[in-house]
Design a protein around this nucleic acid. Sequence first.
DNA 1: CACTATGCGTACCGGTCGGTAACATTGTCA
DNA 2: TGACAATGTTACCGACCGGTACGCATAGTG
Lengths: 204, 204
Amino acid sequence: MPRANNIDATISDSDQPAPRAAEKIMAAARDLFYSRGIRAIGVDEIVRKAGVTKPSLYRSFPSKDELAASYLRRYDRDFWERFDQAVEAHPGDPRAQIAAFLTRVGKRSQKPGYRGCGMTNAAVEYPETGHPARIVSEDNKKELRRRLREMAAAMGASDAATLGDGLLLLIEGAYISSQLFGQGGPAASVAKNADLMIAASLAD
Amino acid sequence: MPRANNIDATISDSDQPAPRAAEKIMAAARDLFYSRGIRAIGVDEIVRKAGVTKPSLYRSFPSKDELAASYLRRYDRDFWERFDQAVEAHPGDPRAQIAAFLTRVGKRSQKPGYRGCGMTNAAVEYPETGHPARIVSEDNKKELRRRLREMAAAMGASDAATLGDGLLLLIEGAYISSQLFGQGGPAASVAKNADLMIAASLAD
DNA sequence: CACTATGCGTACCGGTCGGTAACATTGTCA
DNA sequence: TGACAATGTTACCGACCGGTACGCATAGTG
């Protein structure tokens, strides 16, 4: 009975006890993968930080690549939670939803330790098509693109596809430039610039 | 007499003969680093592709990290060459200069094998402050930011810093999303979106 | 108690990593 | 032809990589 198959569920649904080790491993992997990159981190360092041993890792996760994919699936869930928070804060007002989301991204980008989007970073680290980690990232970005275009249409943009894509470019640019420049970087202006772009698109 | 110290110059200035092996190594490293990432490529694969041996690599480059930095310094030169081509094509018209540059980026982003900016990618792969590869990337991006703000000011933008940063966000977003989505991705609309943003900024 | 299931640790695997020592061979130019 | 610089050849290094065989400890159950 390979528990590794539904480890994502067992970790998140903490009512039914999962191996304690798996949670500690995931927590350690999350910190290390996010802050220093997936390729840069070896499994030894993960288990050391988690305070467990290597076989425990491989009982809960079939491989390092799958552990990375699990980390990203969790990242994906957290991402949509943040996104939907911004959406729900401004019902029926997509422009304000975008502004709320981007204001928060801009603020987070100024905090120390912020290194953009874990999924974007993973896609850069793993250009190979079909890599487990990459698949999670690509799916997330496709869905994000779809939702942004949808919101652009709801704003009444004449060219919703272009505006939605423009917003996506700004978001990804904010993620990346935050780790290129750190504090004081251009990501701080993402909300303002997005609003300018939206204004120009709606006036078109 | 360690030739490795000024290997960048000896490779680019081909009038004074440089070690043939160094050029072959650089060409191989360039292809491999760009298409598959720096961390993903081992020195063995580089020398194999270059048709040389490992000691030859370490006679021309002090380390793999320095080879990566050399690759990026070359990338930096090529980048500014492309950038300045767009600038020189439209003297005294910064808005057209940006449009020309971004149109080209948008087109390149639709070609197979395109994987964004090598320097951006390297910065994602090496978050560690002070890494030789990262330093080259950071310097390039700082200079790019400076020039974009300068151009935004020359356009007459009331808030040139914000517009320049917005353009930088769009550019970085185009680089990254090109490898997230490949052909048909949002990077194709970067020039159009930038022009919208500029228009809104100037009308402000 | 004995039995089983489960979670975990010790110790180890072959392979690859970046990097080097020592020496043979080549090509070039005086 | 001789000198010298550049490259190739071979073999090696310690460290680390992802991954695993196997045995031990504990908890729950009859």
